[in-house]
């Protein structure tokens, strides 16, 4: 695992990602909020935000994901719960499932503002998608660590016990260092 010490990271990639992250985040939110009546939507927005997370992972290793300090499972649950709630809400006042309602506000200075309940649904989907991609990423990172630990332990055993089973499992031991 050469990544953790940071020596073999690409400087160019890291700097580009640093600059790109805010743009991606803003763009993802933009996509999500226009989704109710224009191309875009929660899924596309969520994927763009997830792409930002993945880029950070590529640029600076597993710490980028861990430093977020959010459990992706909670994101999945919260997103799904929000979407389900927004879908069910209209049933309470006699509408149909998933029926969209529009609220209009008149905040000072900006003029009229519309909030559509399907935007909330989109936000739910957005959060859910980010959570899923992060969960996949975290799972692979953790599994990788596990394999690395297992390999280290096996190496130690092997060096202690001599080389009596050196033929065993060449696939696992060699490819551990390739990442």
């Amino acid at each position: 695992m050469s990544g953790t010490d940071g020596t073999r990271r690409s400087m160019i990639l890291a700097e580009t990602v640093n600059g790109l992250t805010p743009v991606l985040l803003a763009f993802s939110i933009f996509l999500t909020f226009r989704g109710h009546n224009a191309p875009g939507g929660g899924f596309a927005g969520g994927l763009v935000m997830a792409a930002a997370v993945i880029l950070r992972y590529l640029a600076s290793g597993p710490e980028a994901v861990r430093s977020l300090r959010i459990d992706p499972i909670v994101l999945i649950g919260a997103g799904l719960a929000l979407a389900a709630l927004v879908g069910t809400w209209p049933l309470l006042d006699g509408g149909e499932f998933l029926e969209s309602s529009i609220w209009k506000f008149h905040p000072p200075l900006i003029g009229e503002m519309k909030l559509v309940s399907s935007s909330l649904f989109d936000i739910g989907v957005h959060v859910l998608v980010v959570g899923v991609v992060m969960a996949v990423l975290v799972a692979f990172v953790e599994a990788d660590d596990e394999v690395a630990r297992a390999n280290a332990a096996r190496e130690e055993l092997r060096s202690n016990a001599g080389h009596d089973d050196a033929s065993g499992d060449p696939g696992t031991t060699t490819s551990g260092g390739e990442r």
Binding site: A150, P170, G171
Partner: peptide, 26 residues
């Protein structure tokens, strides 16, 4: 769009299964 989403989910699941299989028996 729906079927892309589904393919995405199934692919990541299968990949993780392949990875798991690889950690178990190389």
């Amino acid at each position: 769009l729906t079927s892309i989403v589904i393919t995405f989910g199934v692919m990541s699941f299968l990949l993780s299964m392949a990875y798991r299989g690889w950690t178990i028996d190389g």
